[in-house]
Design a protein around this nucleic acid. Structure first.
Lengths: 220, 220
DNA sequence: GACGCTTGTGTCATTGGATGACAAGTTGCG
DNA sequence: CGCAACTTGTCATCCAATGACACAAGCGTC
């Protein structure tokens, strides 16, 4: 139940032949899309191109993914869903931002580790890089986080015993956390897009900087 | 020079007949779009509908606006641009977040005051409400802010004498500020979408809550 | 006021994303 | 094997967006 949606993870045993085929097709589509996006660019690649490159019809592509964006964003969705799950399991003693940070870090670790590799590195990292170099995808990423924010804010509100409809802090915190994630992703990408640990470190640095960023003046 | 892009403002004297016609058409399109979006919903309204309702061709619509979203988002763009302008004029003594807040508040005030009215209230407010009730538009709004964030962060970095490429704080602050704006917009919308002052107050309340949201535990 | 020049508009065609309908092919299973 | 359930491809359609081109309307000039 805790891994309900994790059928896409590597070490799964996919029941019958039918299921195995589907997993294979989805994976092939993901890779083909990633390849094409990276070489030609996201906008310059049509869904037809992707489908044709693995010899399926465009219609089939849309049966596996909700849209062109979804090929990449489904990983981000996965992270967001995992974060939600992890957050529910955080000990009550942790203060809100700490619980969020831990849950987020664990979610990223899991996705990076469980998802298939792409050229030796976790596919998840390649996806982030691609997203960060495509404005339309950054926006779509924001949208995904937006969709999850209410749920996350709800959990935080419950943990702290406040009413999310009256107290702005739950939503604010979630939103601010999301901001830090986005800025950190970008910094990581611009700094060369190293490994998973570099990404997590970068995120930590940014989250540490939050307090200092919003208060007082900055020293040069 | 400071009001270079403000041709859309009310009290302008539009040179010749040609210009006056254009302003009229653009305004008619905006209103028609707003009407249709509000009654049928954003997705359910086609660009053809909008154009047909004021008897112009779809092609003409796309000559006035970059796309369907742009009819509404151009107001948000205006706010973002004004904020940028205001920020450049803030006194150096103000600390970063304070300068941002003042610049943002002034930008909103100006847009709300200068833009045409829609059913008695500033059109800007109607647009926010519509955006807030349409997920796709919220995402697009985020994208607009995203496009401006680097410029804003650059100004803040310069004011404070830090290097925006090394210090994460400029980008962080801008991003966090943007988060607060979005959360505040939504809260304002859900609270009944009162007037401009209510929006500004709501924004202030959210910005005041930032520090408390990210640190420590919350009291019930 | 007639002449061009510039600019805005409509029509037409096209591309690409996304979805519904239906027929044909596969897989799963008794 | 043979039927039921499911997957896929083809076809048609809708809509956003853009380029090409012809036509009309504003604008300045003589």
């Amino acid at each position: 139940m805790s891994t309900a949606n994790a059928a896409k993870v590597v070490g799964e045993l996919p029941a019958g032949l039918r299921e195995r085929k589907k997993v294979k097709t989805r994976d092939a589509l993901s890779r083909a899309a990633l390849d094409l996006f990276r070489s030609r660019g996201y906008e310059a690649t049509t869904v037809d191109d992707i489908a044709a490159s693995i010899d399926v019809s465009k219609r089939t592509f849309f049966r596996y993914f909700d849209g062109k964006e979804d090929v990449l964003l489904r990983f981000q969705r996965e992270v967001a869903d995992l974060l939600l799950e992890e957050l529910r399991g955080r000990p009550e003693r942790e203060e809100p931002l700490v619980a969020l940070r831990r849950a987020g870090a664990r979610a990223i670790e899991q996705v990076a580790a469980q998802l298939p590799l792409y050229r030796g590195k976790p596919m998840y990292l390649a996806v982030i890089s691609l997203i960060e170099s495509t404005p339309a995808l950054v926006a779509a990423h924001l949208r995904i986080m937006l969709d999850r924010k209410d749920a996350i804010a709800g959990i935080l509100a419950e943990r702290e015993g406040v009413d999310p409809a009256l107290d702005p802090r739950p939503r604010l915190l979630v939103s601010v956390y999301g901001s830090a994630v986005v800025v950190a992703n970008r910094a990581w990408h611009e700094a060369g897009a190293a490994g998973t640990q570099a990404l997590l470190d970068c995120l930590d640095r940014h989250l540490d900087g939050l307090g200092s960023a919003i208060s007082g003046r900055w020293s040069a």
